[in-house]
Design a binder for these strands. Structure first.
Length: 280
DNA sequence: CACGTTGTTCTTCC
DNA sequence: TGGAAGAACAACGT
C-alpha cells in the first residue's frame, strides 16, 4: 500500500530512469486506470514529449512535460498525474533487464501493467496497478489540483509548530485524524499504526486527551518513521527491529514485551497495536 | 465465492 | 464552515 515513503521512491525512480527522456509511445493497457481524461488525450499530451521534473505531495505524484528536441513552444503542457492506489508501483525495462523499486513486486510480470511509457531506444517505464484503485491523468496546475482536494502539507515538509497547531484543532480519535490527508498528506494505514506504536499511544485516544509529551513524540515519530522508510527506499524489511511493521498479522506479538497484538477496526481500517504498551 | 483489502469521497449529523 | 463518524466504492485474489 503505497504511502508517502513509497511514492517518494517512485518519484526518485522516475528521476533516475526517465527524466529528460522523450516518450516515443504511450500505451494504455487498461483504460479504467484513467481519471478525467480519455486515452487519446493522455497519449496526445505525453507522446513525443519529455519528462522534465517530478513533484510529490503526500501520495500524489506529478510529472512535468515539455516538448522534445527543445522546440520553442506554443502553449504550456499539462502535467502527468499518478496515484498508486493500493497496489501501484513502477518498473523500468532496458535491454531485457527489468528494474523494480524496492517496494515493487519482486515476482513482477506484465499482467498488471496499466500504462507503458516507451522511450526511443526501446526501454520503457511501466505503471503497474493490480487493483485499479490508482489513477493516471492530466493536470493543468498541480497546486490548483491539490487545493481543490484540500490536501494538507506534506508530512515530511511540515514543521512541528504547524503540525501541532493543526492537530490541536481536532477532537476525534488520533488514528483517523492522522489518516486525514487534509491535516498532513502522506500517512496511510501502516505508518499511522507505526508512529502510534512508537509513541505508545492507543489509536482510539482522543487528540484532546494527549499530553504535550505525546504530541511532541507524535511529530518526532511521524518524521522518523517516514524518513527511515524513505532512507530504506521503502524496503520494509530493512526498517528497525523494534518496528511494529514486522509483526502485523494475525499472530503478531509486540516486539517490546511479546504481548499478542490487538487487531481492531478503527476509523474503518484494520489496526494493529499493543494493548499493553499502548494503554487506553 | 463471499470476503478482505485501503485511499478517497460522499453522506449525515452536529 | 468544517469536523466526526461511518458508509460506500473501486477491482482483484483467495
Amino acid at each position: 500500500m503505497p504511502e508517502l515513503p513509497e511514492v517518494e521512491t517512485f518519484k526518485r525512480f522516475i528521476d533516475r530512469y526517465a527524466l529528460g527522456r522523450a516518450v516515443q509511445e504511450v500505451q494504455v493497457l487498461h483504460p479504467k486506470i484513467l481519471e478525467g481524461v480519455t486515452q487519446a488525450a493522455l497519449i496526445a499530451a505525453v507522446q513525443g514529449n519529455c519528462f522534465t521534473r517530478t513533484v510529490r505531495r503526500g501520495k500524489h505524484l506529478f510529472i512535468g512535460l515539455a516538448p522534445a528536441g527543445g522546440k520553442t513552444n506554443v502553449k504550456a503542457l499539462p502535467w502527468l498525474y499518478l496515484h498508486f492506489g493500493m497496489t501501484g508501483y513502477l518498473s523500468y525495462t532496458e535491454q531485457g533487464r527489468t528494474m523494480v523499486n524496492a517496494y515493487g513486486d519482486p515476482a513482477r510480470t506484465d499482467a498488471h501493467v496499466r500504462v507503458r511509457f516507451a522511450f526511443e531506444d526501446g526501454s520503457h517505464l511501466d505503471f503497474h496497478e493490480q487493483r485499479l484503485f490508482g489513477k493516471a491523468g492530466l493536470v493543468d496546475d498541480p497546486q490548483a489540483y491539490m487545493d481543490a482536494k484540500r490536501l494538507g502539507p506534506d508530512a515530511l515538509d511540515v514543521d512541528c509548530k504547524t503540525f501541532l497547531a493543526a492537530l490541536k484543532r481536532r477532537k476525534g480519535q488520533i488514528k483517523p485524524v492522522l489518516l486525514d490527508q487534509s491535516l498532513v498528506a502522506g500517512i496511510g494505514n501502516v505508518y499511522a499504526d507505526e508512529m502510534l506504536f512508537q509513541c505508545r499511544i492507543h489509536p482510539e485516544k482522543r487528540v484532546a486527551d494527549l499530553s504535550q509529551g505525546q504530541l511532541d513524540c507524535l511529530y518526532a515519530q511521524m518524521v522518523a518513521v517516514l524518513q527511515n522508510t524513505v532512507d530504506a527506499e521503502a524496503a520494509r524489511e530493512q526498517l528497525p527491529k523494534g518496528y511494529l511493521i514486522h509483526h502485523r498479522g494475525k499472530k503478531g506479538r509486540c516486539p517490546r514485551d511479546k504481548t499478542p497484538l490487538a487487531v481492531q477496526t478503527i476509523g474503518g481500517r484494520t489496526t494493529y497495536f499493543c494493548p499493553a504498551c499502548q494503554p487506553e
